[in-house]
């Protein structure tokens, strides 16, 4: 399963990267979102998968899955959410002002 997850993460990264490399602001944000999902899955995978039960002490099974990555992902999810929100609002503000969502047209003026 770890292998499959690693491949999935890689695939998500590929897709995310491809999106990030496109011209549209929105696609880039999509790409970043997908990459952040991939990262979360990767962290989860790094702790080992499916061994033991959910990290709740009421569950009576042998061993727990590694709770630490879960806590890390939780923090990461929240932070990502915060940043995504900011980025989204920023992009729509720029969209309004520049009347375009094409990042290639937001290069800024080449100086001199």
């Amino acid at each position: 399963m770890e292998t499959i997850m690693a491949c999935l993460v890689g695939l998500l990264f590929t897709i995310g990267t491809y999106l990030v490399l496109s011209r549209q602001m929105l696609r880039i944000i999509f790409g970043l979102s997908i990459i952040s999902h991939a990262v979360n899955l990767l962290i989860l995978t790094s702790g080992g998968l499916k061994t033991g039960s959910a990290p709740l002490l009421d569950e009576k099974m042998a061993g727990f899955t590694d709770p630490l990555p879960q806590a890390l992902i939780l923090t990461a999810i929240v932070i990502n959410f915060a940043v995504t929100a900011l980025l989204l609002v920023l992009s729509y503000r720029s969209y309004q002002i520049f009347k375009t969502d094409d990042m290639e047209r937001l290069r800024g003026n080449p100086d001199e």
Binding site: V20, L32, S36, V39, L42, I43, P69, L87, L90
Partner: peptide, 25 residues
């Protein structure tokens, strides 16, 4: 205009940071 680029690049780098954390962990 510039903050868009700034944020996007930093989001990527943060993602890399987490990837690194995952590997190292």
């Amino acid at each position: 205009r510039e903050s868009l680029k700034y944020i996007m690049i930093n989001v990527i780098s943060s993602a890399f940071f987490l990837v690194g954390v995952a590997y190292l962990y």
